[in-house]
Design a protein around this nucleic acid. Sequence first.
DNA 1: GCCGAAGGTGAGCGAGCGCTTAGTGCGGCC
DNA 2: GGCCGCACTAAGCGCTCGCTCACCTTCGGC
Lengths: 221, 221
Amino acid sequence: MSTAEETAGGEAQAWGEVTPDAARRLLIAAVEAFAERGYHATTTRDIAGRAGMSPAALYIHYKTKEELLHRISRIGHEKALEILRTASRREGSATERLADAVSSFVRWHAGGRTTARVVQYELESLGPDARAEILALRRQVDGEVRGIIEEGARSGEFEVVDVHGTTLAVLSLCIDVARWFNVDGPRTPEQVGELYADLVLRMVGAQGPAAAEAGEPPAQR
Amino acid sequence: MSTAEETAGGEAQAWGEVTPDAARRLLIAAVEAFAERGYHATTTRDIAGRAGMSPAALYIHYKTKEELLHRISRIGHEKALEILRTASRREGSATERLADAVSSFVRWHAGGRTTARVVQYELESLGPDARAEILALRRQVDGEVRGIIEEGARSGEFEVVDVHGTTLAVLSLCIDVARWFNVDGPRTPEQVGELYADLVLRMVGAQGPAAAEAGEPPAQR
DNA sequence: GCCGAAGGTGAGCGAGCGCTTAGTGCGGCC
DNA sequence: GGCCGCACTAAGCGCTCGCTCACCTTCGGC
């Protein structure tokens, strides 16, 4: 969980599940290349080169360049879903769970910006079958967030006019972090996570302490 | 300003300034192609084909494929800036102006989704010089929004802890609309604009009528 | 000590890319 | 009416792409 080696260009995260070693190195190289230049602008020679291998080596572990993207996208979406599920299923009020979900989801997008970029923005480079599979995962992601907001609205904890639309907006906010977040910028992933969790609680009209702590004293709306 | 002919696949908007006619047709064809498949996955043959011309015709009006993207990006950013400036400089409270800015900016992203996608997501496909020029425009865009939020915070109309971070979040929300908005979906650009304006006012802790209206009885869905 | 599989390489294939060039059709000016 | 110049095309150049194939190296099992 050290922050040090994450920013070292590796973002070593969940790729532990990928074996053998050479396949994992290729996958990580592909993530970096896709994130930097986009899927279509990345060549198989570039990926293999980053992994310290010859262009042909790629095809021992993956059938096509698209299979690389597919694998990255699935693993990434599963990780995202896991993060939201963990936040959603913990104990606590809807306010606490929503804040937890947003801050950890944002932390993932900021800290693992390289991966998140590929996961969130290269979906359309996939073929129809792979895209359909990933879209199903994405619907589950939406569902987790909507679930929390619905509960908060039902219990009166939140004050939401349009649950669907608000869910969309919350996800928007989190996902767009992958677009603008800069590792060399002034904010850490943790700070952005906190800020965004606060903003989201305001959006849903949560009245808990977390919302109040943001402003000044206590009180109002 | 008619909504009818915008969604007709053309999004005929501001391209009127591009002459001669053939150059405009090529530009519009390029916008559509870039939005659908991304810059790198689009071929010059595809662009020319959509415009009903031979591949070579493109090079009479544009030096390179990149020049097309550059032109699209500059015109698009100028349009975006104009929209925000108009909202920012009108009369009214910071609350009113922020709501106006967000709703019109969102309407542009949703209604002109094709263009907005290219403008917001293909920046990195530009060469260093062109990118630098566009980034300068983008900083002005940020500045307009930040200006409104700063004023509202100073006057006490808003209750904002982190002006910079909140500005980022507001822009995030608007821009991400280009990623998910679907013309065949259940929402019109106008509805999304209204919803998002309301959410943003909540985010900045505005206490005006617009924020209250969201809560209960009066008005809309 | 030999063998087969697994993992890797160098060379190169067909295809499609961005872009160029030589030539064509045609409207406007003297 | 003749000619120029502009908008456009057909053909294709040089290059790089995703991917393949014949061959090489390493190494555990017997």
